Amino acid sequence: MPVGPITLILNGRAAVDERLREAVGSLRDSGFQVDVRACWEDGDPARHARDVAEIHAKRRGDADLDNAVIVAAGGDGTINEVAAALVECGGECESDAGGPILGVVPYGTANDFATAAGLPVDDPPRCLLQIPDLTCHFADVGRLNGRPFINAASAGYAARVTTEADPMVKKLLGGMAYWWTGLKNLSDTVGTEVTVTADGDRWRGRVLAVVVGNGRYAGGGIAVTPHARIDDGKLEVTIVPEVGVSEYKALYDDLAAVAEGRDPKLLTIGRAENITIEADAPIQVNLDGEPLTDRTLKFDVLRNAIRVLLPATSPLLSAPSEREERSLLGIGAERG
C-alpha cells in the first residue's frame, strides 16, 4: 500500500532529537510529504489529529489524500489521544481510503502499545523511517464508559502505581519505575471489592487490580493481558486478586505462565465483547495515561474502528486460524 502524506504529531520533548529531524528529512528526500506538528500543551495531540482528520473528511476522494497517515510520536497517552480523535471524527474504515491511518513512533516512558505491536521501541527515528514499509490493518478500539482507548485500562492498585510513580524515577528507570513503585507501596495497599461481568459470566471478590486490554502490555512492559489482539472484536480482562507481599512475585509468575500457555494459579483471565466492573467504592482507573475515578466501568468494542500501520508479523494481529470466535478463558468462577 503506497503511503500518502504524513502528519507527525510530535511530543514537544522529542522535538530536540536530532536523529528524528534527520529521519524527517530523509523521508522528504525520498518524496514523502511530511508535516510536523509539535505538542506543547495538554490536548494538543487530539486537536492536531482532529484538524487533519477533518481536512481529510472534507476532501474525501482527493487522490492526494488517499492513505494519509497520522503518526503519533509520543507515549501511550499521546497514541491514545490520536486514536480516540480518529474514532470521534468518524474514521471508520469502510474502504481502503476510509480515513487517516494511525502510525506510531514511541517516545514515552512505558511505550506499552508499541512494545506489544512489535515496533523497535529503543529506536524511535527508525520507527519513523519504516512507516512506508509497514502494512495497514483494521484495528478494534475499546471504549470505557464511552471513552475510546487503543491499549488498556487499569483499575485499582495498578492505576495508583501509574499515577504515583515519581517522574525522576521514571526518567532513571523507565518502565521499571512502575515495578519499583508497586513493590514499595504494596504493604499499605487494601484491595477493593468488585464484581466483574464478562459477556454474562460473573466474578466477585477483592482485587488489587483489574486490567482490560485491547493491547497486551501495561505498567511499563508487563504483559498483563498477554493474549489480546486488536483485530478479534474482543477485549481481554485480567483480574488480579488481593494478595499479601509474600505472593506478589507469584502474580508475575502467573503472567509468565499464561503467556506460555500454562494455567495461572492466582489470576483470572478471560476475553469478552462486553465487560462491566462494579466496585463497592469509587475505584481509580488509568486509561492509557488518563486518570479517572468511578464505581461502574462499562467496556465494549468498536470493531474495525481505525486503520493502523504495523509490522506484518505484529503479535497484536490474529493469525487466520485465530480469527474465529473465541470463548472466555476462565471467567465464571466466583471468588467470595
Results as ranks from 00 to 15, higher is better:
74 G>E: 05
13 R>F: 02
199 D>V: 02
317 L>P: 06
93 C>W: 05
184 K>T: 11
23 A>C: 12
230 I>D: 02
272 A>I: 03
216 R>K: 15
88 E>G: 06
190 V>L: 09
102 L>R: 05
310 L>T: 07
253 D>W: 01
167 P>Y: 04
163 T>I: 08
242 E>G: 03
90 G>R: 03
105 V>G: 03
69 V>M: 07
305 A>Y: 07
105 V>W: 02
51 D>S: 13
276 T>A: 10
154 S>L: 05
259 A>I: 06
226 P>I: 07
226 P>H: 07
221 G>Y: 06
5 P>R: 07
194 V>Q: 02
53 A>I: 01
130 Q>Y: 00
83 A>M: 05
234 K>P: 03
175 G>S: 14
131 I>N: 03
206 R>D: 12
54 E>I: 06
32 F>A: 06
40 W>V: 09
14 A>G: 07
290 E>C: 10
208 L>W: 10
164 E>H: 09
217 Y>H: 14
212 V>W: 02
204 R>F: 00
190 V>H: 13
255 L>P: 07
185 N>P: 01
81 E>T: 02
126 R>F: 06
96 D>A: 10
37 R>K: 13
286 N>W: 02
111 N>E: 11
201 D>R: 12
188 D>G: 11
333 A>G: 07
328 L>C: 11
245 V>Q: 13
172 L>G: 02
239 I>L: 14
158 A>L: 00
283 I>A: 07
325 E>A: 13
236 E>Q: 14
278 E>M: 02
170 K>R: 15
254 D>N: 09
311 P>T: 14
313 T>E: 14
51 D>R: 12
260 E>L: 15
211 V>L: 11
158 A>F: 05
19 R>F: 03
153 A>H: 01
99 G>H: 04
90 G>S: 09
130 Q>D: 15
71 V>Y: 02
11 N>G: 09
270 G>N: 05
302 L>H: 14
249 K>Q: 08
52 V>W: 03
44 D>P: 10
82 V>S: 00
76 D>S: 08
37 R>D: 00
56 H>V: 09
230 I>V: 15
124 P>I: 08
228 A>I: 03
198 A>P: 03
261 G>N: 13
311 P>E: 15
86 L>K: 01
209 A>T: 11
314 S>E: 12
331 I>Q: 00
7 T>S: 13
92 E>A: 09
246 S>V: 11
246 S>M: 12
273 E>A: 09
104 V>N: 08
16 V>T: 15
